[in-house]
Design a protein around this nucleic acid. Structure first.
Ligand SMILES: [Zn+2]
Ligand SMILES: [Zn+2]
Ligand SMILES: [Zn+2]
Ligand SMILES: [Zn+2]
Lengths: 146, 146
DNA sequence: CCTTGAAGCTATAGTTGCTAGAGACATTAG
DNA sequence: CTAATGTCTCTAGCAACTATAGCTTCAAGG
């Protein structure tokens, strides 16, 4: 049985994050020691590793919640899990497309600036006027974390 | 003079967002009509367009605050502005690198799943075990929005 | 002129995924 | 035994908005 600190160390997750996952119900309530400290066994560690890995792949906690409850029903079809993964892939692809456009615009700005006074700065100028941009990079949908 | 609604429409910014920008000091306090409603002129519109465009290019509000105060001093060197833009470019490039790795892993997962039961689902399996991944995609630094 | 509906006002709370702090209790090394 | 570290709960804060509630003001139609 590991204390929360050891578990965090083992899984590469900070202690408050583990408590947070428990609080929102992603991790079950941990066993407690005589002195009321959380104790974790192998199952908790695997579950935490799953969560952490999915987070590292960009899944939201909501998606992870669904994936976890699916993985608790091994006999069912995996179609739902695959759909979540495909949705995540689509999300990543759309962010990639957007970031690629942003990168191109930022490179243009930086390259075009001759480096004089603010009044002549291409960076400031372009920021003030999207029609100076080469691509349409404007924000299509919601802002999501990476 | 535009009302806040017309300004938002013209600039592609929601009304509460404009009020929010004023509240945090990105936009100056607007003039008010006799009935206490905000009124905006061309300068406010340009400033809002600048903010919006910079946001669309992924700059944080903090960076935009700095860029705006730089653009208010046209005689100074633009080195600071260029540095902010280059930092933003670097940030975008690092997000791109990460997302590219994520995309590859997600594609692998999705493609490898034969689509049977959860117990045999490659998606669930890989999520539980990073050593099944082809690349090291783990989260390096802080989570930042796109 | 009056009414009605849209648009505006303030203030507060919610979103996501944590992170940081305060103040108290538990455990462990020396 | 004591000191240092770890853990406990609870609360608040971060970015960048978004949503809600309960008002007031405005513009247009009858
Ligand atoms: Zn410049
Ligand atoms: Zn642009
Ligand atoms: Zn599957
Ligand atoms: Zn992995």
């Amino acid at each position: 049985m590991l204390t929360i600190g050891k578990l965090g160390e083992a899984a590469g997750v900070k202690v408050p994050t583990i408590r947070y996952y428990e609080q929102i119900g992603l991790l079950p309530e941990a066993e407690r020691s005589a002195g009321n400290q959380r104790l974790y066994g192998r199952k908790a560690m695997e579950r935490l590793a799953f969560i952490r890995h999915a987070r590292d792949l960009g899944f939201t906690l909501e998606a992870i919640r669904d994936l976890l409850s699916l993985s608790d029903r091994p006999d069912q079809s995996c179609a739902a899990a695959d759909a979540i993964a495909r949705a995540q892939l689509a999300e990543i692809e759309s962010r990639l497309a957007r970031l690629t456009a942003l990168k191109a615009e930022l490179e243009r700005m930086v390259v075009q600036c001759a480096g004089g006074k603010i009044a002549d700065c291409r960076v400031i100028e372009v920021l003030g006027d999207h029609s100076l941009c080469a691509t349409d990079h404007r924000h299509p949908e919601s802002e999501v974390p990476s």
